[in-house]
Write a protein that binds this DNA or RNA. Structure first.
Lengths: 138, 138
DNA sequence: GTATATGCAAATTATTTGCAGGAAT
DNA sequence: ATTCCTGCAAATAATTTGCATATAC
């Protein structure tokens, strides 16, 4: 069931200069509607959208995730050759990746301490540093 | 041009219990024949193989990279949603990834110092930690 | 009214698989 | 002999794109 309040979602879109269409608002609601951080794939968000009774096509989910990422509203995480994950937490933080279930979670940022990092080669600057801690059930 | 010496490549395969077929020896030669570390994709290795005059099918390149990785001879690196990279350096070390050219390189391992790492959640152990430093030309 | 977004189906890209023939042990 | 490997073509999976219609500004 959709909240009647769309202010948060509208503000979120507006902050990136994106038009508040029905589809974007409904996906935004699923992504950031409750203030919790979320990790989704195109497929998982599409299913969540279907389950919530909204109608948004899979192509639009793909396109919207891409647009949101390029606008800085999401962070794309690459852990797995095949699928892309998108994180509503756009700050620099490490991830746990469960190798068996292919699930991606935040790892506690305050427990990671990088004391020294290689310098970027000449002519380059660091765009971001991805730290993925891969987990195997023991 | 293929070296007449295949001892290194044979040893490399034998150490993982893999049969020294013509195709594997020739790919192994391209991968570790000169003792340098290399980062390849299926496509790039296939091209290198074609250029060297050997005939190995693309499917076999894919299958062979997978077999080599599962045998521990290569390390698969995921940097990019789409393509898989394979590294002949199987030790734990960070990578530079050039976002514009999609090129993957080793970063100096001695310049990375991780002082503290999040503990694995209960019931899990760390399988590996991937550190990818993404670079943008400046 | 004009620019931008959406939906569908078709296209593309990376990769895997089934199976018949070939090579290694 | 038997087990494993290779090549091809077809299958699959994730994602993108072209284009007509719909919606936001």
């Amino acid at each position: 069931m959709t909240h009647s309040v769309t202010l948060l979602e509208e503000t979120w879109l507006a902050s990136a200069g994106l038009r508040p269409t029905r589809q974007r608002l409904s996906l935004a609601h699923l992504l950031v509607g409750d203030g919790e951080h979320r990790h989704v794939t195109a497929e998982s968000l599409y299913e969540a959208s279907r389950d919530s009774g909204e109608k948004v096509s899979l192509a639009t989910v793909y396109n919207t995730l891409r647009v949101f990422s390029e606008a800085g509203l999401l962070r794309e995480i690459t852990v797995n050759g095949a699928r892309s994950y998108f994180d509503t937490n756009v700050s620099n933080h490490p991830h746990f990746f469960w190798e068996d279930s292919e699930e991606l979670m935040d790892a506690p940022a305050d427990e990671l301490e990088i004391a020294r990092l290689p310098d970027a080669p000449d002519g380059a600057e660091i765009s971001k540093v991805d730290v993925v801690i891969r987990l195997r059930r023991s």
